[in-house]
Design a protein around this nucleic acid. Sequence first.
RNA 1: GGCCCCUUCAUCUAGCGGUUAGGAUUCCAGGUUUUCAUCCUGGCCACAGGAGUUCGAGUCUCCUAGGGGUCACCA
Length: 465
Amino acid sequence: MVVTRFAPSPTGYLHIGGLRTALFSWLWARKNGGRFLLRIEDTDLSRNSDEALAAILEAFDWVGLDYDGDVVYQSQRFDLYKQYIDRLLEEGKAYKCYMSKEELDALRAEQMARGERPRYDGRYRDFTGTPPEGVAPVIRIKAPREGEIVFEDGVKGEIRIAASEVDDFIIARSDGTPTYNFVVAVDDALMGLTDVIRGDDHLYNTPKQLVVYEALGFTPPRFYHVPMIHNEQGRKLSKRDGAMDVMEYKRQGFLPEALLNFLVRLGWSHGDQEIFSREEMLEWFDPHDINKSASSYNLDKLLWLNAHYIKNTPNEKLAKLLEEFGVHIADHDRMEFLLDATKERSKTLVELADHIRMILERPAEYDPKAAKKAFKGEALSILRAFAEKLESSEGLHLPSDYHKVMETFVTEQEIGFGKLGQPLRVALLGKMTGPGMDEVMAILGVEETVARIGEAIERIGAEQS
RNA sequence: GGCCCCUUCAUCUAGCGGUUAGGAUUCCAGGUUUUCAUCCUGGCCACAGGAGUUCGAGUCUCCUAGGGGUCACCA
């Protein structure tokens, strides 16, 4: 049985670094038919935010990561933690420390001044005297004083930390509330975690948590410390370059499958494969294959993946997704033509929506350069003749029908395709680029096509004569 | 600063002692297209540096440099 978890603190939204470790954990649990748990690390009551929690759950829902059982809130388990703290106190594995914050600060300053590493000096470790008046004690756990703490990390290999690096850290604040490293270890053990996959900024917490496991007699899980994601300059990810709310990717028109595919390939690979369906991720993912080094966020690759997934998403589904971007074409009788004509030239749903609007709405203006170039010489008479040709044709429906009309027209007129295509493009779309004319006409229909040609002749022709 | 981790094209990566160091994104060129995009073909581009070990090192060891993480009554 494999049990993994994602354990965010509700102090901010979910960003892609967190989403990636969540994905890795989810994949590993699901791949093995195990359980994936969600736990909220909200022991610091003053920093919690309901909005942050809601945002995290919303992001999970969007990308389709499901978790087993109820969400566990550490803030609701204080009684439980207290039992374990009391037990450690009774067994002499933890002790009350009456050092005030001021004293601690002073000690730290002193140590720093001597060029030493700030470290609690253990002065109350074996204290038996009368405690000072008026000081609410914190509770510290007894960490080993010599030797080293060794563990096998599934990603980094063997990690050895000298015991001198781990001091008797605080497991309960003076107000009685437990602290992070203590509750993480207790919960991971109690929740039956077998594999902890987390960011490698937690690497240094692991020896501390192992101290708790040891003191409580719990069996530690396997640890996998996943390297960070850096920005495109190789520095720490900030909001500017991708550390934004995962939901922001949705708003910017990314597909969850693209984002997940992008993230799974950051620090992990399977041979030369770039495109992974969810099934393939489940098939091949293994945390032991995660790279040791940090990787950089690369927007170009994400966009490429997104374009790929847009191209390969069924039109019906795209039409549904486009609702959120102000484009309502689910009931449009030419919905298929519309998306066939636009999905291959869109990197995001935002772009796709723009492209669709550009076809559906009459050109508000004609690009001056394009108009000048396309509407010269006999362009006007060609367009007029083509409009007539369209009106006299029967049974035009498919893009291929329109293509045939164009073909016979240019043959009859003995002109090149461009002589018709360029002015037609400007007349229908107002610019020189875009989908094929046959596709656009199939979407617009004869009536609208002829109307746009007429309008363009009127407006551009008038300007030029 | 102490401790820990990391280091293959600009970027994501393959490589697990013997390869013309492979793929993908970006970029460039050509083809396809009435245009743009897609797509196809091709090209540019890397083992951080230095010592070892070895017949042979991107692969193993050490050193240097660079980057990152961490040193809370935050998580």
